[in-house]
Simulated assay, not measured.
Amino acid sequence: MDERTGRWRELNQASWDERVHIHLGSTFYDVAGFGDRRDSLKDFEKAEVGDVTGKRLLHLQCHFGRDTLSWAARGARAVGLDFSPPAVEAATQLAADLNLDARFVLADVYDAVSALPGQTFDIVYTGFGALNWLPDLPRWASLIAELLDDGGFLYLAEFHPFSFVLDDETGRTVTNDYFDEGPHLSGGPGTYADATAETEHDVTIEWTHMLSSVVSAIAGAGLRIEFLHEHDHTFYLQRQSLQEHADEIYRHPVGAPRYPLTYSIRARKPG
């Protein structure tokens, strides 16, 4: 194991801190356009979560808050939490600029309970590209159970781990070990939002959690899984073999065998 994996939190935070302002200015995130539409959520997320009017919603690993503010625009009493000071600062400013009622808390996700003392929520939400930064899913699920009010639910939308087992060019050949969850050295110069951006903090540590690991962690925390949905589309060029459709949705070519690219879970705390 590379000695850098023990510094996963330090390396990952340095990378995210550096990239916040790159992302704010990128066409990928289109902050100006977001100010007009105030909605960065996927259609199935909105349908599966349902009406959030008046609900207390916590968004874990919120980055600079687009999704948090999208829930706020839909009527939620939203709180976003992230470990990056520049991200929380940017999110707070964006909320003020758009006059949206949301607040943001600076804390590592594993410190969320102590960062929100005595607070519980109707909904805990976590979106795409979050779980791969976490080494300990049972601990993550347990803190979510503690943060949920009785009868509240976790809603998770993520990239499907099976899609990363296959080769990038064709998406038909198994090239990676599904059962090797990591840690993995990752990263590189630039960012998914701007490949040409000049960056210094280019080493990150990630995990590729099996779907069974995610489901088992959630169930093990005492949450009752209401559904697990697997989707045949995604929201970036996850494999070179995918084809772009309207609204930046990527799908398998027509007539080609399909496999899941994303998934979503809703799990409720009894009570």
Rank of each mutant, 00 (worst) to 15 (best):
residue 251 R to E: 11
residue 178 Y to W: 09
residue 227 F to M: 08
residue 49 V to S: 02
residue 87 A to E: 07
residue 257 P to D: 15
residue 46 K to M: 12
residue 251 R to I: 12
residue 161 P to T: 05
residue 12 N to Q: 08
residue 1 M to V: 03
residue 96 A to Y: 00
residue 238 Q to F: 07
residue 102 A to Y: 12
residue 110 Y to V: 00
residue 88 V to P: 01
residue 63 H to E: 13
residue 186 S to R: 15
residue 194 D to E: 11
residue 67 D to F: 03
residue 40 S to P: 04
residue 102 A to Q: 12
residue 211 L to W: 01
residue 89 E to A: 15
residue 238 Q to P: 01
residue 150 D to K: 14
residue 185 L to E: 12
residue 36 D to Y: 00
residue 162 F to P: 00
residue 149 D to A: 15
residue 95 A to G: 03
residue 126 T to P: 00
residue 257 P to G: 08
residue 73 A to P: 01
residue 163 S to G: 01
residue 97 D to A: 14
residue 226 E to R: 08
residue 147 L to E: 02
residue 100 L to T: 13
residue 133 W to N: 14
residue 260 P to Q: 04
residue 143 L to F: 08
residue 126 T to S: 14
residue 238 Q to N: 10
residue 43 D to L: 10
residue 181 E to Y: 05
residue 160 H to N: 12
residue 217 A to G: 10
residue 10 E to M: 02
residue 71 W to M: 11
residue 248 E to I: 00
residue 269 K to D: 08
residue 82 D to Y: 03
residue 73 A to I: 02
residue 243 Q to G: 01
residue 19 R to C: 02
residue 150 D to W: 02
residue 192 Y to R: 06
residue 74 R to Q: 13
residue 58 L to I: 02
residue 122 D to H: 08
residue 89 E to M: 07
residue 250 Y to D: 02
residue 183 P to M: 13
residue 121 F to E: 11
residue 101 D to C: 01
residue 77 R to W: 03
residue 193 A to N: 02
residue 260 P to M: 01
residue 207 W to R: 05
residue 77 R to K: 14
residue 226 E to H: 03
residue 186 S to Q: 08
residue 7 R to A: 12
residue 10 E to A: 08
residue 14 A to V: 00
residue 142 S to P: 00
residue 221 A to P: 07
residue 4 R to T: 04
residue 224 R to G: 07
residue 152 G to P: 04
residue 7 R to S: 09
residue 18 E to K: 13
residue 86 P to C: 05
residue 171 G to W: 00
residue 263 Y to E: 01
residue 69 L to H: 12
residue 186 S to D: 11
residue 236 Y to N: 14
residue 74 R to A: 14
residue 158 E to K: 04
residue 49 V to W: 01
residue 127 G to N: 12
residue 146 E to V: 05
residue 121 F to L: 09
residue 181 E to V: 10
residue 264 S to F: 13
residue 99 N to M: 03
residue 29 Y to V: 04
residue 259 Y to G: 06
residue 94 L to S: 03
residue 217 A to I: 04
